[in-house]
Computed example of a mutant assay.
Amino acid sequence: MMKTDNDTARFARPVRVHGAADARAALAAAAALGVPVALVAHAAAGGLWLRTLLDDARAAVPGVQACGVLDCGDRAGDAQAALAAGVDAVLFTGPPAVAARLADIAAQREAALLTALPAPLDLRGARDAEAACRAWLAAR
């Protein structure tokens, strides 16, 4: 896993979010447990959307170490756009040579480039997203 930072704890139990309620639930659970959390969104959501979502969740649940990861698959253009939008981290699974160039760009923007990530908890359809996140994050 290529990263531009050494903080692997925040990427250990990622949570896939689909909206503001998911993000707030994940941060509330992380706050209750005193652990960091990474919110993962599909590239189609866009870097600006993820950044705004995370900013709003941080305002609602202050003091939580949280980061946003845009899952760009093998699409380098999406990864570059996400980094330009100011996301905390990008997941890129394309060719290693391209990943190395993206890692340089990420480092310049103080972001992380990930080439792998543990399977996230997906909150789509969760009846009680905060409880699901608490159980997921507690299992570190």
Rank of each mutant, 00 (worst) to 15 (best):
L50I: 01
L50K: 02
L50C: 04
L50S: 01
R51T: 14
R51V: 13
R51H: 12
T52C: 09
L53M: 15
L53A: 06
L53D: 08
L53P: 13
L53Y: 06
L54E: 07
D55N: 05
D55F: 03
D55C: 02
D55K: 09
D56K: 12
D56R: 15
A60W: 03
A60Y: 09
A60M: 08
A60N: 10
A60T: 08
A60S: 15
V61Y: 00
V61S: 08
P62C: 03
G63W: 01
Q65C: 11
Q65V: 13
A66M: 07
C67V: 15
C67H: 07
G68L: 10
V69H: 02
V69E: 01
L70A: 02
L70G: 04
D71V: 06
C72I: 03
C72P: 00
G73K: 03
D74P: 06
D74F: 00
R75A: 14
R75P: 00
A76I: 06
A76Y: 00
G77V: 05
D78M: 15
A79C: 05
A79D: 08
A79R: 11
A79T: 13
A79L: 09
A79G: 10
Q80E: 15
Q80T: 11
Q80N: 01
Q80Y: 06
A81F: 11
A81Y: 06
A81M: 13
A81E: 13
A81N: 05
A81H: 12
A82E: 04
A82Y: 08
A82L: 13
L83I: 10
L83W: 07
A84R: 14
A85N: 12
A85Y: 10
G86Y: 11
G86C: 09
V87G: 00
V87N: 00
V87A: 06
D88C: 05
D88Y: 00
A89P: 05
V90A: 09
V90P: 02
F92D: 04
F92A: 04
T93S: 13
T93Q: 11
G94T: 12
G94S: 12
P95R: 15
P95G: 10
P96T: 08
A97W: 00
A97F: 05
A97G: 02
V98A: 07
A99V: 03
A99Q: 00
A99G: 07
A100C: 10
A100T: 14
A100G: 08
A100R: 15
R101V: 12
R101K: 13
R101L: 13
L102H: 07
L102W: 07
A103F: 04
D104I: 07
D104Q: 12
A106M: 07
A107Q: 14
A107K: 14
A107H: 14
Q108W: 09
Q108I: 01
Q108T: 13
Q108S: 14
Q108E: 15
Q108Y: 07
L113E: 04
L114H: 11
L114P: 07
L114C: 08
T115H: 10
A116N: 02
A116L: 03
A116S: 14
L117R: 03
L117H: 05
P118C: 04
P118S: 04
P118K: 04
P118D: 01
A119H: 11
P120V: 01
P120D: 01
L121E: 01
D122Y: 11
D122P: 09
D122I: 04
D122W: 05
D122L: 03
L123E: 02
L123G: 03
R124P: 05
G125T: 07
G125V: 06
A126P: 04
R127K: 12
D128I: 02
D128R: 09
D128E: 05
A129E: 11
A129Q: 08
A129V: 02
